[in-house]
């Protein structure tokens, strides 16, 4: 089987590699780039422990081929370590016991971050709906929801580029 060249932006830096076409993005991130904050919690696309930002949107990196991410921008928790909003979120997760074992936490943080970039003061239902692709077995979600509610706004709203007009080929 042919290998494919994959070049993408990972946490702000160009990352070039050659992988088997079937390589999942999560394995590129964890095994090749050694960024292990991103976890694998299931192989059934449910748990969201593998959540990363792909062109600014949270996706399940265990259900994306590395090749699909070629030419695109990938951010993991490591790449957001200096981000002021992420720092606030982490502080609140610690303060409100938004984690116990910590295995789902990276994915939870990225989904929460993505929500707060879209909406500064989401209500409880909006929070819970945005987290519904991230499963936590320890906290019962209450501490996580509290943490997100407690983040004080002050971050500029994210601008996601609108989808392009359809074109006929």
């Amino acid at each position: 089987m042919k290998k494919v060249k994959v070049e993408l932006k990972l946490n702000g830096k160009q990352f070039k590699t050659e992988v088997e076409a079937r390589t999942l993005l999560v394995d590129l991130v964890r095994e090749l780039a050694d960024q292990t904050a991103t976890h694998i919690g299931c192989d059934t696309s449910n748990c969201g422990a593998c959540t990363v930002l792909l062109d600014g949107r949270p996706v399940k990196s265990c259900t994306v081929l590395a090749a699909q991410a070629g030419g695109r921008d990938v951010k993991t928790l490591e790449g957001l370590s200096e981000d002021p909003l992420m720092k606030k979120l982490k502080d609140q997760f610690l303060d409100k016991h938004g984690l116990q074992c910590g295995f789902c936490t990276s994915g939870m943080l990225i989904s929460s971050y993505s929500l707060l970039r879209k909406k500064q003061k989401p209500d409880e239902l909006e929070i819970r709906e945005s987290l519904s692709g991230n499963i936590c077995r320890c906290t019962g979600y209450g501490g996580i929801v509290d943490a997100i509610k407690s983040v004080q706004p002050g971050i500029e709203k994210e601008r996601v580029a609108p989808a392009p007009e359809i074109q006929r080929n």
């Binding site: 059934t44 449910n46 819970r128 987290l131 991230n134 936590c136």
Partner: peptide
């Protein structure tokens, strides 16, 4: 066959206490 099939509650389904 999946984590979801086994009935673990997600954040929308989960109650608080």
């Amino acid at each position: 066959a999946t984590l979801s099939d086994s009935g673990v509650l997600n954040s929308v389904q989960a109650p608080d206490i």
